[in-house]
């Protein structure tokens, strides 16, 4: 199993947010998580990547069989985990390509691989920029500095194309994108899809899923997975909403 989350309980300041969440995403598959605000979707993304401020009271998260919960965020990244942030940060004064090359080489070093040479890195960067229709001068600036919401989301996918993770969590990557940008980003994500890689797409809306065609859709509410099904489940949610799951839980 690529990503396996088992009976995960997570609290923030003594308030339980995730209440026994279990989920499995095999290699080669794209799963979507949909759910109302406050369901705990972003908490799941943060806990999986090792952000401070969350207490795991029970359960486990494994990537390719390795337990992640005790690892530092950078170790998880080196193991192949990548989060596309809902709100990507602006790093004023940190040039995009310097940042990414530092990150890629840090990951390679942690895996005992050789550093990438500057020309090879540039080749990779150019190819990724072409896929995402990003002008190269965007990459010469500080990371995300002065970027629009949509440009930042595109930059997240650009980073994924460079870092080539084994597993991606996309946290509302579609929010803030107009329809053209959504299409480009979806193409970028589709480019990353292969038999060895898994993805978990967190979203409120159907529209990204129209492009990505997930293998499975999970409904999350009240800190748990309440329902799972095929792409038809996403369409049903779009028309019927989440009320059913909220009532179920109550």
């Amino acid at each position: 199993m690529m990503l396996k989350i088992d009976n995960l309980h997570v609290s923030v300041e003594d308030k339980e947010i995730l209440k026994g969440l279990s989920l499995e995403v095999p290699a080669g598959e794209v799963h979507a998580i949909m759910g109302p605000n406050g369901a705990g979707k972003s908490t799941l993304a943060h806990v999986a990547t090792g952000r401070d401020g969350y207490e795991i009271t029970d359960g486990s998260i494994t990537l390719k069989g390795e337990e992640l919960t005790e690892m530092e965020p950078e170790e998880r990244a080196a193991k192949g985990l990548f989060l596309s942030f809902q709100y990507p940060l602006e790093l004023a004064g940190v040039p995009t390509l310097t940042f990414l090359r530092t990150a890629l080489n840090a990951q390679r070093k942690a895996r005992g691989e050789e550093e990438i040479s500057a020309p090879d890195f540039m080749k990779k960067a150019r190819a990724a920029a072409e896929t995402l229709k990003m002008p190269m001068d965007m990459l010469k600036r500080s990371l995300n500095a002065g970027f629009s919401g949509g440009e930042k989301k595109r930059m997240e996918i650009f980073q994924a194309l460079i870092l080539e993770p084994d597993f991606l969590i996309l946290d509302e990557t579609d929010s803030g994108l107009d329809i053209d940008a959504l299409k480009v980003v979806a193409e970028g994500v589709d480019n990353l899809r292969n038999a060895d890689r898994g993805m978990l797409v967190i979203t409120h809306y159907q529209r990204l899923l129209d492009y990505l065609a997930p293998d499975k859709v999970h409904v999350m509410a009240q800190g748990r997975i309440m329902d799972s099904g095929g792409p038809e489940l996403a369409r049903a949610l779009e028309s019927e909403g989440y009320d059913r799951y909220l009532e179920d839980a109550a």
Partner: peptide, 27 residues
Amino acid sequence: NALFYMRSRGIDAASARALLIEAFISE
């Protein structure tokens, strides 16, 4: 948040801190 962002990309905490501070000073 910026530190976590950098660490989530694989940069260790000390290096992330140094990069951020250097960027801050460079202005």
